[in-house]
Design a protein around this nucleic acid. Sequence first.
DNA 1: ATGATAGTGATACTGCGATATCAAACATAA
DNA 2: TTATGTTTGATATCGCAGTATCACTATCAT
Lengths: 126, 126
Amino acid sequence: MQRNTQQRQAIQSVLSTAMGPLTIPEIHQAAQRRAPSLGIATVYRTIRRMLDQGAILQIGIPGELPRYENAGRSHHHFFQCRTCSRVYEIHDCPRDLDRLIPEGFELEDHEVFLFGRCNECRSVVS
Amino acid sequence: MQRNTQQRQAIQSVLSTAMGPLTIPEIHQAAQRRAPSLGIATVYRTIRRMLDQGAILQIGIPGELPRYENAGRSHHHFFQCRTCSRVYEIHDCPRDLDRLIPEGFELEDHEVFLFGRCNECRSVVS
DNA sequence: ATGATAGTGATACTGCGATATCAAACATAA
DNA sequence: TTATGTTTGATATCGCAGTATCACTATCAT
């Protein structure tokens, strides 16, 4: 039977308050604020179990480590800042994607990644 | 000085006639029709050199090996078939992506991946 | 034709993300 | 409080994409 440990609480808390999907190292670092001794193996184990249970989803971004976010959120896409590399959720979606595909093809799903500079990084004088 | 070998010609030919970006194993397998003894190390070396020279571009698709395509093509996106895993180019683009991003953010670039079933796989009786 | 040298193929090695191992620590039922 | 069995942290190990090595081969200017 599954136990409710400090470490798991820390990881779940980090994922619940995240602004976007996080990598394993990001989760590890953030969760150590609540559980200082947290080891990287526990992060991998916990994330894998949560994936198996369907509690979180894996998000792949080209050329990056896999990221994880809580399941059950509404359909969304991602914006990655080219300065700080952070990933933000976009709660909107392009329309008419069906018109893009060739005749005879069947569209089931789509992913949209936007890249640029986030609010915070733009306001830094460089 | 760079020499024009059978192996390089085979790899360039494969990339020029491809319907979409190819992985290293895909390039290796296809190029072996023209250069049967072609080794995988030569494919890696040649692709790396062509990347350095700007002759090809690297395309990352979430959860997949990197793919490569000739540079200088017009802006396009990708469709991946969930049955055969092949990737096709889409010569069209969603509009109005600027409206998706939050206030204060700056959009520089975008990637769109479509997933579904290609013409060929749909026509197979299953 | 031939010599200089860039390129090739086989394979050993590297880098690194992810997993397995195991003794110690902790959570929970009784 | 105690016993049981799950979880943890440190670290060894694995898997695999990609690179380095090196003897041999092929290209191409002469």
